[in-house]
Amino acid sequence: MSYLEDIGSYFLMLKRTFGSFTKRSVLKELILKEIDDLIIGSLGIVAFISFFVGGVIAIQTALNVDNPIIPKSLIGFATRQSIVLEFAPTFISIIMAGKVGSFITSSIGSMRVTEQIDALEVMGINSLNYLVFPKIVALLFFPFVIALSMFLGILGGLVAGVYGGFTTLTDFTTGLQDDFDTFHLVYAFIKTFVFAFILATVPSWQGFYMKGGALEVGKASTNSFVWTSVLIILTNFIITQLLLSS
């Protein structure tokens, strides 16, 4: 019963988020600030993780492919497929659920605890539109983060594969181009948009409706990470079934 109430309040939150808009000039500033906090502020960690995980994928593929019949170009192929289909869109989103999601929940939760949300409501401001809508708009730029992750992941694979002596540049690039299906990119970016929406709204919901004090803000942040990750994994499964299994 409690889960049904939670689902209901999540959708009611979405309805209120898109109603009674904040003044345009203020909203513009809020969106730019959120882009800075949520997107620009995440580029460093995403770049670091993507580059090295790309390298690890290439090395592990090389080490597990010791049959001389299998061409070395498989290293580039496997790196591309792993990164484009799953690592960049799904696992970077889960990492972002930890970084961005916890930030969103704790910042909105702290505002709830210190009556800042009440202050907005008393002033007649739609607090959900003021707080959540700019985050949704900012996370529309999330696909750029994922595109960067794809590029750096493949680059990491190339550097580790070629300079680690596991393959040649020609073999790796041949593998990258082998059997390339552009729909895989479409699929990855469709997933990314859905995950971006989950990333913006689920942590916001956790923070906005939390009750209690500082300890509960911490608990809400943890719950936010858990539920955002679970939803990302579930929607990943559903989207993959719908788009790739036919």
Partner: peptide
């Protein structure tokens, strides 16, 4: 009308409720 009324209200919260 409620939104307009709230524009005419000033509120001092227990903890100040200033935006951090």
């Amino acid at each position: 009308q409620q939104r307009h009324l709230r524009e005419e209200i000033g509120m001092l919260f227990q903890g100040g409720a200033l935006f951090d």
